[in-house]
């Protein structure tokens, strides 16, 4: 059981990083990005395609990250340019459109058969109190915490962070103060594209997923973000890791293993009933 939990933390790290991306994008740009994981999948698959074409791993990773960032940045520009004004709901339907486009493109480019994916982390493992812990688990956890920590510090203590927070609170005011909010939005999008690719490169070797199944890893990430009400980065990280751990544990239980992908939905329903037991009203009077 404990083995299962530990091995689930790799997936958990991926969910956590994706959840951080989702939360940051929602907080700063006001977009709930259903295509978050698909952007990462695009980067990861570009990387593996290049590795398959005998390009060195380092260059392939660089190209994957670059393609995902540029695609994400462009998507952000399109959404800010044409759906800047309407409500968060409309912008989110816009990201559903993005997901459909990415899935169609991914299917065209990479097909729907899974492929072997080289690990970025050397195969190694050690014993910790009788539990087998692989090096990739440790690295994944460290990367997750580093990303979440760096983002929290960035948002709280730097000029850029203050501008970003201000932009999310009062976009028009910030624009009148001479800050180019569209540029900032594009930058945030590009950064989340890069981080999502990183998250996918972490999880891919353990699962060898198809482009489509990778893209739907956004579901546990969205669930993790929702548990933190799409505002708290650290709750999102903890929830992402927890979902991974529960899935890992579920994988070791007879009869539940095949259905462990349904766990996020069960978690979200139970959690929402508990978290929202008190009435809270929507927007302003």
């Amino acid at each position: 059981m404990l083995d299962g939990i530990i091995s689930g933390l790799v997936s958990g790290s991926t969910y956590a990083i994706l959840a951080v991306c989702v939360v940051v994008l929602y907080r700063l740009v006001g977009v709930l990005n259903f295509g978050q994981a698909a952007l990462g999948a695009l980067g990861a698959y570009v990387c593996y395609a290049l590795v398959g074409a005998e390009v060195s791993l380092a260059l392939a990773v660089f190209c994957g990250l670059a393609v995902a960032s540029v695609t994400a940045g462009f998507s952000g520009w399109v959404l800010a340019r044409w759906l800047g004004e309407p409500s968060a709901i409309v912008r989110s339907v816009g990201t559903v459109v993005l997901l459909i486009l990415l899935l169609t493109a991914g299917f065209r480019l990479f097909g729907d058969s899974p492929r072997a994916m080289p690990s970025l982390v050397p195969e190694a493992a050690f014993d910790l109190g009788g539990v087998r812990v692989s090096l990739s688990t440790v690295i994944a956890l460290l990367v997750t915490i580093a990303i979440a920590g760096a983002l929290s510090l960035l948002l709280r203590y730097t000029q850029l962070g203050i501008r970003l927070e201000a932009m999310s609170e009062r976009p028009l005011t910030v624009q009148l103060l001479g800050v180019n909010s569209r540029q900032l939005a594009v930058a945030v999008w590009a950064a989340t594209g890069l981080l999502s690719t990183l998250a996918m490169l972490l999880i891919a070797p353990t699962r060898n997923p198809t482009f489509e199944s990778m893209s739907f890893l956004v579901v546990p990430a969205l669930v993790a973000g929702l548990l933190g009400a799409f505002s708290n980065v650290w709750i999102a990280v903890a929830s992402g890791l927890a979902i991974g751990a529960v899935e890992g544990a579920g994988a070791r239980i007879e009869g539940l293993a095949d259905y462990r992908g349904a766990i996020p939905f069960a978690i979200i329903i139970v959690a929402l009933i508990w978290l929202r037991r008190r009435e809270v009203w929507d927007a302003a009077r």
Binding site: L32, S92, L222, L226, F230, A262, I268, I269, L272
Partner: peptide, 24 residues
């Protein structure tokens, strides 16, 4: 179950249901 959930959050719940049922 989602009486107190609204907007984009509710969309996440429906997507969760869709993926869970798909898997089952």
């Amino acid at each position: 179950a989602t009486t107190r959930v609204r907007g984009v959050e509710l969309a996440v719940v429906t997507l969760g249901f869709a993926t869970a049922l798909d898997l089952v």
